[in-house]
Design a protein around this nucleic acid. Structure first.
Lengths: 137, 137
DNA sequence: GCATATTACTACACAGGTATGGTATTTTAT
DNA sequence: ATAAAATACCATACCTGTGTAGTAATATGC
């Protein structure tokens, strides 16, 4: 599982937000704190708004806030929204059809590992990224 | 772990070779059997020869053969050779320095899963792809 | 109402991975 | 010598992920 930079940025933004006491986050603050390219972050935030993880407040005194409780936002949803999760679920050898019934030569041994990984992303929420001992998002 | 197409092709070539009774494999045969683009496969085979997994026999009746016993060729070596393995071992959130001592907010929970996956690729050899019930490489 | 602060939208640019095409060279069995 | 096979370059094209630039739209404070 090597996430795209866009997914990394998305998770880092959300990890920062859940670990901060602020309610409203400005793009400028996020850019400086997380070292994400300015315009890139802005597009990402707009996208994440559309997907319903956050909400944007326009105008002066505006910014971004969570659109729902962070324990209802799962890692797999974020990844799927910003880069798509399908590719990580396909056959490790690149076969179109690969299943228990018609497996590739790696399927039997690798499938359990991939399933474990997927379950992790499916069950872990943004809220679980809250950890007061960690100052790296 | 979403491998590059180049890695997928490499594994499929080696899986096909270990599952066949033939000793010498011609590029033409590999291209047709595995549906890999002609020129792309040829360059890949040249690369794999340089890395010592296979050997090329030039001239008429030439082709490719294993350069060493397939139980001495591990998946991680093949992946590392053709696309590099480093990116899969870095921090899931993209941090430069992320370790037990200075972890990101996902490190503690995700590191064991990534380690398990890496161990799988480190310990599984091409020989283990041999399976007479499988006809998909 | 106006200036300011902030996000939204559209288009473009660059790099790397993936793929194709051409031409010429080297090696070896027959 | 001829044919069959791989090697070596080299150029190009496409797609995607990543990143940049400029302009438009929105809301607030005064």
């Amino acid at each position: 599982m090597k996430l795209s930079k866009t997914s990394e940025y998305a998770l880092r933004v959300l990890a920062y937000m859940i670990n901060s006491d602020m309610q409203v986050f400005k793009a400028k603050d996020l850019v400086e704190t997380l070292n994400v390219p300015n315009k890139y972050l802005r597009r990402l935030m707009t996208d994440m708004s559309k997907y319903g993880f956050i909400k944007s407040l326009q105008g002066r005194e505006g910014g971004y806030v969570f659109a729902k409780n962070a324990d209802k936002i799962f890692l797999i949803e974020v990844i799927d929204a910003v880069e798509g999760i399908d590719k990580y679920q396909g056959c490790i050898m690149g076969h179109q059809s690969c299943s228990e019934e018609n497996p590739c030569s790696l399927h039997k041994s690798y499938a359990p590992i991939r399933d474990l990984e997927m379950e992790y992303f499916r069950k872990t929420s943004i809220k679980e990224l809250k950890d007061k001992n960690i100052h790296k998002f």
